[in-house]
């Protein structure tokens, strides 16, 4: 039984659909596309008659609308979005709204906490690097030529005004999806939902245990396996879980693996970084940042996460 509804209001080119299915374990799964991938909301609804399904559809849509909103606002590709505006300001200052300012404050804090390893201006380096599983390494000179355009310390962020030197760009892709998960969960909580799981492309937040009191179980994909084999499962009652790393985003040359996590100071991939890091934390954005920080630590990822005392799972 599927309920399908077209959302045509704000984005006529894209079909914005929410589909519902009922999973074997008695929960409803609402699915939609957002933030560059599949998203789902798992709900425990006591009644699955027609009003129950409409209620489920309403709640999934709450989450979907939030995801679409954040995607539209912070996507680099949306010409009417704020990030596009910043990246095309050509050295002119841009005044940001409250929410964008809060995100930049957060990115600024992350830059400081990580001693500059996490940097929202490092996206420019993608012009040199293409992580497609191949073996085409860029010329060191190409990378070096891009470095003057990388570095959050070069930006002049004085809330609510951002003055980015010409040629520099920001990319909130490393924060946006986790932020959307937390905000969607907040929407559901405000609507009175006490038991749900939000999963946007592997970044997860549980709003409370299942209706029967049990935990939600989140499986971690094995990036080395070709199928969808789960190598580890996390029980989740309340809080966030995020994974950094992707099996298919690397380069291999002369037997050496170059992961897609780049060091903004050198322009080259962090050496010895794990393939995948999953972290559990109070919020999805905390989990996501801790996973990213761990990746940036390279071989010290495990040591770092152990010292932080957070539940985690690393695939090397």
């Amino acid at each position: 039984m599927q309920v399908c509804e077209k959302q045509e209001a704000s984005c006529p080119q894209k079909t914005r659909a929410v589909t519902l299915r009922i999973a074997g374990e008695g929960h409803v799964v609402g699915e939609f596309q957002a933030l560059g991938g599949p998203c789902e909301v798992l709900l425990d609804m006591p009644d699955l008659d027609i009003p129950g399904r409409e209620a489920a559809h309403h709640f999934v849509k709450l989450a979907a609308v939030e995801a679409w909103r954040i995607e539209a606002k912070f996507s680099r590709y949306n010409a009417s979005g704020i990030v596009h505006q910043i990246n095309n300001a050509k050295g002119q200052p841009v005044v940001l709204d409250e929410e964008s300012s809060a995100l930049l404050d957060f990115a600024h804090s992350c830059h400081q906490i990580s001693d500059g390893a996490f940097d929202i201006t490092s996206g420019v380096l993608r012009r040199a690097w293409t992580f497609d599983g191949g073996n085409r390494l860029p010329k060191p000179a190409t990378v070096a030529a891009l470095l003057p355009q990388v570095g959050w310390h070069r930006a002049n962020w004085s809330r609510p005004q951002l003055h980015l030197p010409s040629g520099m760009e920001i990319d909130l892709g490393g924060i946006g999806k986790e932020y959307a998960v937390d905000q969607a969960a907040r929407q559901l909580a405000a609507a009175g939902i006490r038991s749900a799981l939000v999963n946007f492309g592997g970044d997860v937040f549980a709003l409370g245990p299942r209706a029967n009191g049990e935990s939600w179980v989140v499986g971690i994909d094995d990036p080395n396996a070709t199928g969808r084999a789960c190598v580890r499962s996390f029980p989740l009652r309340h809080g966030g879980l995020a994974t950094s790393g992707d099996a298919r985003r690397f380069l291999k040359k002369n037997g050496k693996r170059y992961g897609h996590i780049l060091n903004p100071k050198t322009g080259w991939p962090v050496r010895g970084a794990p393939r995948s890091v999953s972290v559990k934390a109070d919020s999805c954005i905390d989990a996501g940042m801790l996973a990213t920080f761990a990746m940036l630590k390279g071989p010290d990822a495990g040591v770092f996460l152990k010292a932080e005392g957070v539940e985690h799972f690393i695939i090397w």
Binding site: S114, R186, I285, M289, L290
Partner: peptide, 14 residues
Amino acid sequence: GVCSLLSAASASLL
């Protein structure tokens, strides 16, 4: 202490 610094930053964001 990264964890606590991070939660402070994310709390004000969220």
